[in-house]
Design a protein around this nucleic acid. Structure first.
Lengths: 227, 227
DNA sequence: CTAGAATTTAAACGAACGTTTGAATGAAGG
DNA sequence: CCTTCATTCAAACGTTCGTTTAAATTCTAG
């Protein structure tokens, strides 16, 4: 009845599968990565994924959850800290942006696995798989809600719809910057593999995001700015 | 020897395959879309794809090429026109941004098929398939080159590396805004299916992009700004 | 030491994949 | 009319997919 008997090696097998799967998902995508590729790279038996995770779909979710859950928790904490520091004043916009995106960039520039995961995460946002989309939505919903509210307090004169659009644009710029770095290579010759690529991108991305956030609102030209 | 005998219906078969394939690629991705799904939706025989295109890989390229080639041609023309209008003066940055992104947004807001294609294109940038990446690179290289030069002339004080980063960020914000609109739905409740969603997004995106482009350069903090 | 659960293993499962084949179909030219 | 050639069609090709099975192995607890 004691479940924790051989769990040490079991956890090791699980982690080896998760590591191999993450690397292969980045390199080939979810669909194009087969169980045999994963178990082969992980050095475990083909049946191990189904034994430890149940199915490939669950494995995909677990690969994402492993790093996304801590990441979003850190995003919450960073906003907590910024709000505590600001007292009863609204947090300044650039602090909110910093809280959200620094958490991501910390993960991306911390380790090779973190960079790998952020690359995967950026791709996953445009993943059509219903399972993946559903998981991402539930995982992100509370975080986005908190940040939306913080932005609304920080920019009380800006309609909430405008704030959501800009949050969306900022998310896109970052996701693409991290995950679509291969296309950047075509344009600039900068490779993400260079260990300091993330560090060099970071201040540039932050400046760009804040510039976009602070841009003048478009004049009410034809669009229904009823709110 | 006369090749144009039954070619009229042949072209029709080709187009029906391309249309069905594009819709399915958007809904399920390249890998998850099978030949049987495509030919079934198109109402043609299973062997038709291999007969008319040779392989699934070629079909994917043809689906992209059909709209991307005209799109990039229009981007070139738009920059030509802006440069002609500016005479020997450098084109203003906001005109360059407008030339590039208006072409995309025109396509996205023109027809349902155009919107569908732009959604597919945004996803394709993060597609790991080597065949697709290679095609995108060759298709985009001359366009990016022209726009990079235009930006360099318009912003002579800004280092080319900074310009490329910002171009990359802008591309990401737009790609994500168009293709990842499903995640926007989670955040805002705005659905891309609404016919005027693109029109409502357009001024907001343009304002955001220009704000990011004009943002102050990050101070040389720790990064090697040797150039 | 031994009973028993947890894990690993090799082998096989049916289903779906992209592609190929050879005959049937249809329209145009001599 | 008959040949010709492009196209369509149903059927099958071999391969790979995710998953399952049952025996072998490893580990722990009593």
């Amino acid at each position: 009845m004691d479940v924790r008997r051989t769990s040490l090696t079991a956890h090791e097998t699980r982690n080896r599968i998760l590591d191999a799967a993450q690397a292969l998902f980045v390199a080939h995508g979810f669909e194009a990565t087969s169980m045999r590729m994963i178990t082969g790279d992980a050095g475990v038996n083909l049946a191990a994924v189904n034994y430890h995770f149940g199915s490939k779909d669950v494995l995909v979710r677990e690969v994402l959850k492993r790093h996304l859950q801590p990441l979003n928790a850190q995003r919450m904490q960073a906003l907590d800290a910024a709000e505590a520091e600001a007292g009863d004043q609204p947090v300044k916009p650039h602090r909110i942006v910093d809280a959200f995106f620094s958490s991501s960039l910390d993960l991306a520039s911390g380790s090779a696995a973190g960079r790998e995961f952020m690359q995967l995460l950026g791709r996953t946002f445009t993943e059509p798989s219903p399972t993946v989309r559903e998981y991402l939505a539930t995982e992100y919903a509370p975080v986005i809600g908190r940040y939306r509210d913080a932005f609304c307090r920080a920019l009380p004169t800006v309609p909430v719809e405008e704030i959501l659009w800009r949050l969306h644009f900022m998310l896109g710029a970052m996701s693409y910057a991290v995950s679509g770095i291969d296309s950047l290579q075509v344009l600039t010759g900068v490779r993400i593999d260079e260990p300091d690529a993330m560090q060099r991108m970071r201040p540039r991305l932050m400046s760009f995001l804040l510039g976009g956030l602070r841009a003048p609102l478009p004049a009410g030209q034809g669009t229904d700015n009823t709110t």
